[in-house]
Structure formats: structure tokens, C-alpha cells
Design a binder for these strands. Structure first.
Lengths: 152, 152
DNA sequence: ATTTAAATCATGTTTCTACATTAAATGTAT
DNA sequence: ATACATTTAATGTAGAAACATGATTTAAAT
């Protein structure tokens, strides 16, 4: 369905307003698809996001402030998100010896296993996207999104 | 900045994973820009979204269920959002005579005036987007987003 | 050395979201 | 007409997010 019929709005002020609305709508649309999967594993999408970041640095551990910086949703409270992961044994905190303000967070084996377990379903979502867009189109979309963010 | 440097992730599983992340990241990026404006007028982006929907049907009024259906964020509690707008005199409820279950919501003059007052700043954001993308590119991006949502 | 500022993370509080439940009105079939 | 299901909106509640503040450690300035 086109955006117009989806949200029942016929006219837009200009191409950029339409783009803004479409971008948010499509991002939410995809978010809801993933959310079902996250819920099955008792994760929020933010918690998953943190786990993914931790896996990317699983050897060394990541400071809380670095996690916050890399998160897609900048306003999230990384400290509390990590509390949740801790409570589920998906991550662990280790105080950083050379800077006692900092806290290194590391993903546990259990956390890695959870990500592993979710992989097939995520791949399935990605495969379904590949039915709609060719790889070239997906790359092109990415390039346009990157370009959009260049504006001040 | 490219997505890779923004979120400090070098490698992606495939083009579609990268697209998923980029889509969410870019949507949030734009959302934050608008949020500042909304806050200045004591609105959340959801409340603004509802006001925009109401304006689109300002003559007739919109049922709560229709608002919920058209919202970008489907899970929002339209009923409570409307409470907030009511408390600020931006919308009013009128019970629907031919179906007493339904409640028609109408935007007030004050609501219309608020939208009017925000228009210049929103246009400014859109103008800044036009520095990054041509109109053709914006349309192309829209088309690709529509196409993406066709997948099941 | 002492003071000041900055960085880092945790916590308190308020508001919002997600989900289930309730309540009333309407539709439908017998 | 009655019974039962469905639609529509509001509310109760737990949990999460948003935002401000506080506590501790480090770095910088004088």
C-alpha cells in the first residue's frame, strides 16, 4: 500500500514533508515486526540493541557511555537498560581498573546464545525484505538515507 | 556522516540488516530534530500527529478508532492522547448522534492556531532537508520506502 | 596543594506506553 | 424480544522512557 492510503492523507505540503512522514511510518512498521520477535525472548528493542553493541566488542567490554553513544535511541537510559540485562544474566559489569568512574560491560555466554537463537528469525525478516527490494535498491535506499542526514 | 561511523559498526550481515538499522537511525535522527520544536509548544510528537490528523478532517470530526488507525505509532493510546489535547483546549469531544459508542473528536480554533504557529519552523526543517536531497531524490526515497513495505 | 570543572554512572520522579479489563452501545441470529 | 457476539472507547496497572538531580572520580587551573 502507498503511504497515502495507509494513513489516509491525500495531500502533503511538499516532497519533504511526505518523506518525513513516510520515514517515520516505515521505521515504525519495521519496528513492530521486530518487536514481536523481541517479545518472544523477553527483550525490548532497546535491550536487543545494547546486546548487539556488546557482541560487537565482546572481547574487550564497552563503557556505559560508549553504549549510550552508539545506541539508535539516544535518549535511552543505558544504565537502567544494563540493569535489566544484568538481572537476566545476559551481561555483566566489571569495574574498569584505570578509571574508576567507568564501568565496563561485557556480554555473557548466555547473552551471546540468546542473540544466536534470535538470528534465524531476524534473517527471515531480512529475507522477506529481499522480496520487496533488490539488493541494489536496498543499498540505494541506504545511500539516500545517509545523504539525508547530511543536512544541518 | 555515514552510518558506519555514526554507530561505530563496521560490518553488517547483509544489505537488508544495514538498511533496517539505517532506517531506524535516520527516523530517530529526524524525530529528534522535530521533538525540539514540539517541546517548545508543549506537545509530544504523538500529540502533534493527532492534531495533524484532526486538521485533515476539521469539518467533520474523527472517531477515536479512526485516529488510532491513522496514527504513525499504532500502539499509542488515542483515548489518553485526546485527554491531553482536551486539557489544553486543542481539541474537543462531541458524541456521535448516530452511534453513541463513538466519539467524534474535532480540533479547536486554538488547536488550528497552534498548528499554524508551528508551520514556519517545520517548513524550516523541510527546507534544510532540501539542502541534502533534491526533490527527485526525496520522491525516489519515498517510492523505495513504499516498495519496502510491500513485503510480507 | 586547593579549588574548580568535567566526566561517568546511578537514582528519583514524572510521564508515557503496552496490555488487559471494563462498560456501554450496537449488530445479529433465533 | 432475547441472547450473544462485536464494536467502541475509557480505565487500571505494570513497566519503560524521559528528564533532572546526585554521587563519585578524574582532570585542569591557579
Amino acid at each position: 500500500m502507498s503511504l497515502e492510503t495507509d494513513i489516509k492523507q491525500k495531500k502533503f505540503r511538499n516532497s519533504y514533508q511526505k518523506l518525513s512522514i513516510n520515514l517515520k511510518y516505515t521505521s515504525n512498521w519495521l519496528g513492530y515486526r521486530e518487536m514481536d520477535l523481541f517479545k518472544e525472548h523477553d527483550l525490548t528493542s532497546q535491550q536487543y540493541n545494547v546486546l548487539r553493541i556488546l557482541r560487537g566488542q565482546s572481547c574487550s567490554g564497552v563503557k556505559v557511555s560508549d553504549i549510550a553513544e552508539r545506541m539508535l535511541d539516544k535518549n535511552s537510559n543505558a544504565s537502567r537498560l544494563i540493569d535489566k540485562l544484568l538481572a537476566k544474566n545476559l551481561a555483566k559489569r566489571t569495574s574498569c581498573p584505570n578509571d574508576r568512574r567507568a564501568v565496563d560491560v561485557v556480554i555473557t555466554d548466555e547473552g551471546l546464545a540468546l542473540l544466536e537463537a534470535m538470528e534465524p528469525a531476524l534473517l527471515e525478516i531480512e529475507t522477506s525484505l529481499s522480496e520487496a527490494l533488490t539488493e541494489q535498491e536496498a543499498d540505494q535506499l541506504c545511500t539516500l538515507l545517509d545523504k539525508l542526514r547530511k543536512s544541518e
